[in-house]
Amino acid sequence: MDIVQIVSIGLVAAILAITLRQQRPEMALIVSIAAGVVIFFMIAGKLSAAIQALNEVMRKAQLNNIYFTTVLKIIGIAYITEFGSQICKDAGEGSIASKIELAGKVLIMVLALPIVLAVFDLISSVMQ
């Protein structure tokens, strides 16, 4: 599943969305959502392979696994937030998109808090 196929699918979906936009704008939005999901599924295999490799490196380095899984969760939340807010912007709903982004930021901050606190503890212990 190389980049040429992905780009061609994206272009065809864009053309279909434009043809549908005059009569049925909601169908055009649904076509763009479907195209986004199909393209993601094409790269999902490679993405999970890369993440497994990183997991392997983390396990070999005996680093605490909690940090890496938190980073993964943050990336996942960021991706879903971006997916949702971008679709809302396409649909012309800027306010909903900004609310989704706000929620995503809050969730990511909540997830990142323990790591930040750990860093502060480390720094304060070093300072003493």
């Binding site: 959502i33 479907a34 999901v37 993601f40 599924f41 999902a44 993405l47 999970s48 993440i51 899984t69 993964l72 969760k73 990336i75 996942g76 939340i77 991706y79 879903i80 997916f83």
Partner: peptide, 16 residues
């Protein structure tokens, strides 16, 4: 249904 599959996949990939 498509979006449901997407979110299931993302949950499994990112351990969310």
């Amino acid at each position: 249904d498509l979006i449901n599959q997407l979110f299931q996949t993302i949950k499994s990939i990112f351990q969310l």
